[in-house]
Design a protein around this nucleic acid. Structure first.
Length: 351
DNA sequence: CAATCGTGGTG
DNA sequence: TCACCAAGATT
């Protein structure tokens, strides 16, 4: 049976059961204490590819500093990245900031209450537009995230592995068929909550699942094998030479161009080539200090730290950087930096 | 459409 | 130790 017609058959039984379960088991998350569309938006962007527990603190600090679209739009990107520091996928913060400015320019500082208008903003893909539309505005907008995909894969026995086109189509068709009805925002959240806490990738708790009566995979004994795993990402080694230049209580940091890996963030001046070429003739490179490794999704970073002596008066920033300056130790905490850079600073400070 | 873009928890 | 993974978007 096609997944869509199976979905409509399942709908009458699943919808009430899952909404009732959600009313009983929903976690008390800070963004659920508000119906403010802005707060919902920030939470949805932070939650992209990021687990709930990690987001809570970031969301609370972010909302305290930027309580509205206007406050975010008025800020400098650098400060936004400072509050995003350590959360990863920094293009999310850059897009958030751009979108806030577009909202002020085009929508009087209000999030528009339509999926199409939301999708015209930076950082709003199909998922995030559906999430804001349904959760903040109560619109019957479908969404599919990793949790929903897993729940539907199992309940409706949808085959294939991401990013298979037919599978994507079937998932979104099911989401659209099922979201129609009362409480669309709660419905979408109940699916995600179920996926996050019960219908988990490993060792799902089928005995406690409100969908067990209608779950195709449970009936056919395929819960552990659905959905099919996706192929792992290829990881390339990125070896960087890192300049550790200190002067008094300050360290030399440079701000990366606002695109690509770690775009817009501060770091110790680094290059895939030679530090002599990066820093110019007036700098001297001393002994190697240490080697640090960090693993990202698609990269294995190998950071080779070198003592560097750089004249106090800095010229224009090196290739690939927007700025550079001597940063006092105590000021590094508030700068937007990757966790890799934090680790480098930690290593430099301790030895 | 396949690659890019982070991070830390988990088994 | 290491592969796997999490409320995706963009190019």
């Amino acid at each position: 049976m096609p997944a869509v017609s199976k979905a409509s058959e399942v709908k009458a039984r699943l919808r009430p059961a899952l909404l009732r379960w959600f009313d009983l088991h929903r976690r008390a998350l800070p963004w659920r204490a508000t119906r403010d569309a802005y707060g919902v938006w920030i939470s949805e962007v932070m939650l992209q590819q990021t687990q709930v527990d990690r987001v809570v603190g970031y969301w609370t600090r972010f909302l305290a500093r930027f309580p509205s679209v206007e406050a975010l739009a008025a800020a400098q990107l650098e400060e936004v990245l400072g509050l995003w520091s350590g959360l990863g996928y920094y293009s999310r913060a850059r897009n958030l900031h751009r979108a806030a400015r577009e909202l002020v320019a085009r929508f009087e500082g209000q999030l528009p209450d339509s999926v199409d208008a939301l999708r015209s903003l930076p950082g709003f893909g199909r998922y995030t537009a559906g999430a804001v539309a349904s959760i903040a505005f109560g619109l019957p907008a479908p969404l599919v995230d990793g949790n929903v995909a897993r729940v539907f894969s199992r309940v409706l026995e949808i085959e294939g592995a991401p990013p298979d086109r037919a599978r994507e189509k079937a998932l979104w068709a099911a989401a659209e068929a099922l979201v129609e009805g009362p409480r669309p925002g709660d419905w979408n959240q109940s699916l995600m909550e179920l996926g996050a806490t019960v219908c988990t990738p490993l060792r799902p708790r089928c005995g406690a699942c409100p969908a067990r009566a209608v779950c195709g995979a449970l009936a056919s004994g395929r819960v552990e094998s659905l959905p099919a795993p996706k192929k792992p990402a290829a990881r390339k080694v990125l070896e960087l030479q890192v300049a550790v230049a200190r002067r008094g209580g300050a360290i030399l940091l440079a701000r990366r161009a606002e695109q690509g890996l770690f775009g817009g963030l501060w770091e110790l001046p680094s290059t895939e080539g030679r530090l002599e070429a990066l820093l110019g003739r007036r700098a001297t490179i001393g002994p190697e200090l240490a080697v640090l490794e960090r693993v990202l999704t698609h990269r294995q970073l190998v950071l080779k730290l070198w003592v560097a002596t750089v004249p106090a008066r800095l010229g224009p920033p090196p290739e690939g950087y927007l700025a550079w300056r001597w940063v006092p130790q105590e000021e590094t905490a508030s700068l937007g930096m990757s966790s890799a850079t934090r680790a480098v600073l930690e290593r430099v400070a301790s030895g």
